[in-house]
């Protein structure tokens, strides 16, 4: 593994550690429902501050279950990851193509060079 790959791997590990540590250390244990969304908690605070407040509009479409909601969230992540992977794939292919074209063009130039020096 070269230095570049090592640094990238460390970055990924650090992100994973930041996500896993709160779970491993049980930082949600003091809550009735640990690790719920911050937006839901904000709704609870709103109700506490203004008990009469009623949301005056509801979502046009609501995923019928938690499973479908998490499925749609994964779809969002998958779409994004797909486009990102496509981007880096195209560029890697381009670089390899260029390198190959250079390699194909080189032999004649190289032999000319060695002939001169030899």
């Amino acid at each position: 593994m070269n230095r570049n790959t090592k640094i990238n791997a460390l970055l990924v590990l650090a992100v994973l550690a930041l996500a896993v540590l709160p779970l491993a250390l049980g930082l949600g244990d003091h809550k009735e429902e640990p690790f719920t969304g911050a937006d839901g908690q904000a709704e609870a605070v709103i109700t506490e501050l203004e008990p009469d407040y009623e949301p005056w509009f509801s979502p046009l479409y609501e995923p019928p279950s938690g499973e479908i909601e998490s499925g749609l969230f994964s779809l969002q992540a998958a779409l994004g990851a797909g486009v990102l992977a496509y981007y880096f794939g195209v560029h890697r292919g381009r670089r390899q193509g260029e390198a190959r074209a250079r390699a194909a063009a080189r032999p004649s130039g190289d032999t000319a060079g060695t002939e001169e020096s030899g």
Partner: peptide, 27 residues
Amino acid sequence: TLLLGASGAFTFVLSALKIPSVTGSCS
């Protein structure tokens, strides 16, 4: 265009990932 798409895609991925945090909730 391709890099624009990749920037949008990065936002798509990151804002779909609900990650646990030190407060015991997710964002």
